[in-house]
Each structure stands twice: as C-alpha cells, then as structure tokens.
Design a protein around this nucleic acid. Structure first.
Lengths: 185, 185, 185, 185
DNA sequence: TATGAATGAGCCTTCATTCAT
DNA sequence: AATGAATGAAGGCTCATTCAT
C-alpha cells in the first residue's frame, strides 16, 4: 500500500536529516553525545541512525568527510578566482565557518595523522585543492614560500582552535599576517 | 636512596604518581580514558585515585592547574629576563612543551570560557604574568600593539593545536612572525 | 493463550515483570538488593530495568505507589460495604497482605514523613479513602473517636511490623481491640 | 615514653566512644552509613573502629545487644516494682525511648527471627525478664491472658514503628488499651 | 594500639549496538 | 525501511576491610 511515490528518496532524506542533526548535537555537546540524542534531534529512532551509519564512529567520520568535502570545494572555487587575496579569503572562510563547529578542528586535525580509510580520499582531494591555491598565492607573491600544504592545514586547525576561544578575529589576522610574503606590503 | 621514613610522604608520592600517570594516559588516549586505566598506569588501585581526586573531573582539573601553573611560572621567569626576545621564547617554549599535547590545548582553551572555581585562581595568575611579559615586549617594539593577553592565549592554544599535527616548527614560526611588530625588522 | 500480537505490549509486560521481581527481591533481601539481582529475577538485562525505571529510587517508589494504590482501593471498597466491621476487615486485610512484608511497612512509613513528589498523590488518595472508612466506623460506634487517619496509618505500619515477627495474629487482634469503641462490646 | 597512665583504659574508652557515635550516626542516617562516618563522629580512625568491632555487622550487633540489655534491665526493674501499672510503664518507656532511634525496631525485630549467636544470650535474658513482668501483670488482672512474651515483644516492635511516624502518643495508647484485661477497667 | 592510606569488589547508571515487531 | 525495546559491557564512584607506619 504505502509503496508508491518516494521509494528510496525517504531513506536519502533520513540520512541527510541524521547527518544534520549529528552535526548540531555533536557541536553543542561534544562528540560524546549519545546516539540516542542524535536520533531524537533528527526525529528518527536510533535504529534508523544505525541503519545509515553502522557505527557511531562511522557517523563521526561521515561528518568529517562532509566538512572536508565542503572545504575542498571552497578551495577549488577560490583557486578559480583571479583575486590575489583568494588564498586569504579561503583561509578566513574556513576558520570563520568553523566558528561554532567544534568538530572542524578535529576534522582538520585528523588529516595530520593517519587518515582513516573513509577519510583518505577526501583528504587527498583537499590537499590537492589547497596545493593549487597555495602555489598560486605564492606565485603571486602573496604568501611566503617556506610553507607547504601540510603547514597550511595545520595552521587552519590552529586558527580554528584559536578562534574558538577568542572574542574577535584578531588571532586570525595575526596568523594571516604571519603567512604573508615578507615584502608583500 | 629515596628512603622510606616519612609516614605520609607515601601518600604524597602516590598523589604525584597518579597525577603523572593521568597526564600520560590522558595524553595518549584522550580524556575519556578510564580512571581504571590511570590507576593501572600509576600502579595503584582505583580507590587510591579517588582518594586523592574525589572525581574524575577533579583529576582532570588538577592536571590543568598543574600545567597552567608551570606556564605562569615560565612567563614570570621570562618577564624577568632583559632579553628582547623573551616573549617569543616564552611562546615557543609553551608550544614546544606541549609534550602531552592533548591536554595543553584543552588547558589553555579552558581559559577562554568560564574557568571553573578550581582553575580560576591559576587562570588569573597566568593572565597576569602574560600581561607583564606582553607589555614589555610591546614596549620594546618587539610585538605588535593590537593584541591583548586574551589573544595571546588564544594563539598559544592555536599554535599548540597546529603543532600537534605538523611535522616541524614552521606553523609556530608563522604565528610568531604574525605577532611581531610591523617595523620590527 | 496469551498470544503475541501487541507490539508494545511486550514492553508493558516487561515493566510488570520487573516490578514483580523487584517486589520479591526487595522483600527478601531488603531494599539494598542490587538492581542486577532484580534484573536477573525478572529475566531481563539491567538495561531493561533502567529503561522502565530511570533510577533505583524510582523503582522503589513505583513499588510503593503500587502498594498504596491497592490499599486505597481496598479502603474504598470496604467503605462501600454496609458491614459494620468493614473498617476492621480493611485493617486486617492490609496487615495480612503484608506478604512481601518488608516493603509495606516502609511504604506506609513513607506517608508519615515528607512524601516524595511521586508518592504524594497516592498518599492523598489513600488518606482520603481511609478517612471515609474511619468516619463511618466511628459513626457506627465501632471505632473509638479519639483516633484520626494519621493514627490509623501509623497503626497499620505498626501492626504490619508486629506481624512480621509474630507467629500468629494475636498482635493484630490486640491492636484491633485497642481501636474498638469502649462501649462497643 | 607515652606508656604510663591508662594502659588499657584508653581502649575501653574508645570502644565506648565508637559505640556511642555509631548509635547516633546510624540513628540519623540509617544503618547504611559508612564506617568512616562513624569513625569520624567518634573522633578516631577507621582502623580503631575495626579493632574493636571486627566487622560492621559486629558493630551493629553490639549496638543491638546494648539496647536489648538496657531494655531487659528495665523490665527487671519494673518487675521488682509493686505498682500494678508496672507492665504498662515498661512498655511505654521502651517505646518512648526508641523515639529517635531508628534501630530499636530492628533490634526488637531481630528477636523474632533467628537471633544471631551474639544476640541470643541477651535475647533470652530479655525474654525471661519480660516473662516475669507479663505474668505478674496478668496475675494482677491488668493484662489480658491470651498474649505471650513473643506477642509482647512483637507489639513493642510494632508500637515503636507506629510511634516513628505518628505525631503523638495515641497509637501507643491504642495498643496499651488493646493489651488490658477486658474487665480491667 | 591508633591511624588513615590503599585496595578492590560491587553498585548504579549510561550507551553503542542488536533485533523483534 | 523504521522503530524503539532489550542487552550487557564498561565506567565512575563507594565502602568494608587490610596493612604499613
């Protein structure tokens, strides 16, 4: 009977709902929040959460993948821009967007270590995108030449962390200034 | 060598042992490591851990207090030095010492929010010490004048975080450069 | 016979099972018996006990509420009876029914103090029902007029306690005799 | 050096102190209060408590024995009195004295079951004393003849229990009236 | 003999995960 | 495919009891 219009669209929608709810819940109460709570926030049963993400760990990683994917997209977009400040805009955007999102730091941090199987692909994607952006900026003489992609990512994580406990954007400004090429002025 | 005369020295030693073990364990496995594990690492029973720290939370805070206390001492020491690079030395030392990384970030981060009763005193102590050091450095024209103590602390947290996933000291260098007074060169 | 149609009837059944098991276990080993033991007796996991009663305290109170509710119903039933001995029948029934003794005393005792939020409603219910029954009996000249509801309840607790360690019903008889109106004979 | 004046008197004093402290603590917080708390109230270390009473259980029993011993003494004293109301005075005194003492009920209750080895002797002592008192009262026509010592003790426990949650002495009066010989008036 | 630190079993409670409906 | 009840391992914490000082 009730097998007509959206056959699997429902499932997709639920997956998205869960992911969104998880983002919120984990951001607010830390990643130790219970799966039950995520389910409640998503308006579904726990069972549904586990159907889409076989493990809490998997859910967490899906969140990270989602975040990194967005950032990589951002990087690519900015790389396409002719604006010489593109790199800095990207950097600031990532940090600014992480504002309330506890997880970003950890997501980025994750990249430093031994990326899990699930994350590895996005990690590469992100690294590649940032590499392009960074090289352009260095080419343009906007960014100092002694930093590499890994440094940039570490600094993104650091700036996000700093931002988390600072009242304003000054820490970010400091870091961006630190990144500028010496004679950029 | 270390005789066994003092009757309650044993207790003090155990307290220290537990604290040291906790530092290691939490650094390695995150603050969600079990108290049992800490006890095991310290070579004592769980009861002993709880005798010295009535709560896991209390243990964690004791760790933070210990760390912040050391940093404040560092700051005071450097403030007493005539070296114009004192501020930078302090900053680098703190970040470099993030041996048991995990915790330092959180310890510093803790300062941004609403310091717990137990932490508040040390927080003030640290803030005061850094204030002195910072002002001197700004006076000397070594550090840019638009950053305040809170920014410095946020940046310490950020730099520590960055350090955690960087292979080298470059991110630190970047941040330090960002902190220098414009015409310091 | 007891088919398996109802989907959530299972949960209800489990709740009842837990309650019954708890009654037995606490009666036999005192209210300090472990929740684990109750679970075992109910043939469920501990988690199930806690799903139905969020706290051991809550479980205990549910037990008390259940007991008091039954007693209140008894009182109302007897109050509806024209039998002049209704009051005494009620009293004897309550005491006699102290099957799972331990608890009744405490349940009644609970009424003397500061009834918990959960218990207060039933307490009032019981008090009201006994009040009616008592007044009728006093009207009929069956019960002495210098006792109030609170006294009756205290005596119910006392008689139950006495019963607990007496081989026969004599203590109950003594108390009932003490309650009769002087010239009732 | 400090081995002169009271060689073992000290120990005796400590034992008494512990017993007194235990009585208070257990009365106020129930018998589940910790041994540590008793020790603190007694102004001694836990070790000392355990030196005098090898087990918490033993401490509890010592308390009971103490209580029962006093009651037995009371009974003997009243038995020696020519006052025809001696029995009632005794009964009222026991109940009245149990006022705040949570434990009495349990102590008396203990007699109903299978008196522990430690308690058995006092139990007999008490039973004997009450027997004498009861018989005299029955002889005098003050107390109904269909109750035995066991009933009296059960009723003492019951009356104590009732008293615990009653605002006044009415429940006691009711029970005493119930005990009087029919034509005693 | 007194002390109180240490011990560890045991308790209450939470939560990821499974499974019957 | 969704639901949420059931499960049980694991964690934080307490406390009777032991033992070095």
């Amino acid at each position: 009977m009730t097998a007509a219009r959206p056959p699997r669209a429902d499932a997709q929608r639920n997956r998205a709902r869960v992911l969104a709810a998880a983002e919120q819940v984990f951001a607010q109460r830390g990643s130790s929040a219970s799966t039950e709570e995520v389910a409640r926030a998503a308006g579904v049963g726990v069972g549904t959460v586990f159907r889409h993400f076989p493990t809490k760990e998997a859910l967490l990683q899906a969140l990270i993948v989602q975040r990194l994917t967005r950032i990589a997209a951002d990087a690519r977009e900015q790389a396409a821009s002719p604006d010489p400040a593109a790199f800095f805009d990207f950097f600031a955007a990532v940090v600014g967007d992480s504002a309330s999102k506890l997880e970003l730091v950890d997501a980025l941090a994750e990249l430093g270590g031994d990326p899990t199987e699930a994350i590895a692909p996005v990690a590469e994607e992100l690294t590649a995108a940032v590499a392009v952006l960074l090289e352009q900026a260095q080419q343009d003489g906007a960014v100092r030449k002694d930093v590499g992609v890994a440094h940039v990512i570490a600094l993104l994580a650091g700036a996000s962390q700093a931002r988390r406990y600072a009242a304003d954007e000054r820490p970010l400004a400091v870091i961006l200034d630190g990144l500028r090429a010496p004679n950029a002025e």
